[in-house]
Design a protein around this nucleic acid. Sequence first.
DNA 1: CTGGGTGCAAACCCTTTGCAATTCG
DNA 2: CGAATTGCAAAGGGTTTGCACCCAG
Lengths: 133, 133
Amino acid sequence: MAERSTPPQRSTRQRRALTALLGETDDFHSAQELHEILRSRGETMGMATVYRLLNAMADAGDLDVLNHSGEAIYRRCSTEHHHHLVCRQCGRTVEVSGPAVERWTQSIAGEHGFSDVSHTLELFGLCPACQGS
Amino acid sequence: MAERSTPPQRSTRQRRALTALLGETDDFHSAQELHEILRSRGETMGMATVYRLLNAMADAGDLDVLNHSGEAIYRRCSTEHHHHLVCRQCGRTVEVSGPAVERWTQSIAGEHGFSDVSHTLELFGLCPACQGS
DNA sequence: CTGGGTGCAAACCCTTTGCAATTCG
DNA sequence: CGAATTGCAAAGGGTTTGCACCCAG
């Protein structure tokens, strides 16, 4: 069932550029942002390619994907599972991890007979710097 | 600054119909679903109106809004804070609440100096009925 | 009456897809 | 060389908006 043969990923100029860019930052960016950044650096590549690469990488588990009000935002996948505490004013992001939450989701889901559980959790607030404004 | 005069909400046939429909169910529905249900009942109203009403109600804090892969889903706002366990196959929704999680988010945010914290948490999985499919 | 509400359709935004040209291996 | 990959532009799905008409107050 579901034989998952490794897709024969070619190493193209575009893939390298995108991979490199994603490697530089720790923040989430939309496909459009990534595309624009690459363009501003002289790397020409079409939106379609950006989306295709992004989807492929995400499917391969190399990227984390969040959904920011109808827009997908990507980030290189960190090896660990964690969540984000985002300042709703300046956008500053802090990574947080919580074994407690992970355990809680598992047990809750189990109680209701759900299997194959995943979850999304995001925290929003005002960071210290933005509280005075 | 920002004088917030109460928006003069008129009680129209459309608004009543939508409000009534939302009052009947406890599940999340997309704008399109709501529109279709209303139509099937003989209530004629345009998509634009549904979206406008939905947005207005959400802004007014009368509705909970979730984001299900690029699609907004709405539900009448329950007075209590809780989260949802959603079957990613059939869409069945179970409400769950977790004091543990609430406490965790507060403390984590506090540790990083963030104030005015809110959070979104959604659980996805396969419900018992869908596990055999 | 009169201004907010509504409907229609066009506009928008983000994302996906068909197909020919290109490029990696 | 041959298959995977790219680019372009058109298509798609969800949501918003301009504008003329309509109805609640």
